[in-house]
Write a protein that binds this DNA or RNA. Structure first.
Lengths: 118, 118
DNA sequence: ATTATATTTAACCATATGGTTAAATATAGA
DNA sequence: TCTATATTTAACCATATGGTTAAATATAAT
């Protein structure tokens, strides 16, 4: 039985629940960036972005390393593995659902080919 | 390029960001349940649970089907697939990280076996 | 020493969560 | 019809988000 750190998981999912923060993570997947660089695509003040970074950092998804007067932000995907592991438990359920959809479509298809309609 | 529905994804991650709601999903993975049954393990009022169910329902993670005076709750894992797909983009990053950890441990191990220490 | 740059902190606002208790609703059962 | 059961809605409260602007901090550059 895999054991999950509830608080960590809660913070991770919370961090992922905002489109701005997901975009920031996507940007960091392309490489480290400064706070100003991260903020530039958004129509939002710097303090707002700084808060988002704080939430990402609380979840352990990024690290901010001070380098002189700038702060280099770096992705840390480790908490995403925990999140993925948690979700993977439910894989059988969405697959079962897709299977039955496929089955349904298959049945319809069969019917179309045997009931004389054209 | 996979396209994600931002709002749906936000609602899904938001729904997963609370331990009570994750526990409710886990319970529903064992089969449908009534609201009262879902509430019983928690030290929390029924209206509180009802709100959690509302948040899960907004994310599309559960459905509440009215059946007489009771309401049968059912898991729908489909949004979890979207969430899993979104997260999977970052898999290479946590794997790279684990690889370099393994590499590091490997290096240490080699050193221990060749530097004369015992 | 002064000024400019990068970033955070403080103070504020509106809205959303996460909880409560009390009341409303709807249906089942006696 | 009256009552009990299942659940939600309403009204309230405290705290957290997500944003703002203004001020503070720290460092680089002149």
């Amino acid at each position: 039985m895999v054991k999950y750190n509830d608080t960590r998981l809660s913070h991770t999912f919370m961090a992922l629940s905002d489109a701005t923060r997901r975009a920031i993570l996507a940007r960091l997947a392309d490489g480290d960036a400064l706070v100003t660089e991260l903020a530039s695509p958004f129509d939002m003040s710097l303090p707002a972005v700084s808060k988002h970074l704080g939430i990402l950092e609380r979840a352990g998804l990024i690290q901010r390393k001070k380098d002189g007067r700038i702060r280099r932000c770096q992705l840390d995907a480790a908490p995403l593995k925990e999140a993925a592991d948690w979700i993977s438990y439910y894989k059988e359920f969405w697959e079962a659902r897709l299977d039955s959809l496929a089955q349904y479509l298959d049945d319809i298809n069969k019917k179309e080919n045997t009931d004389g309609t054209r």
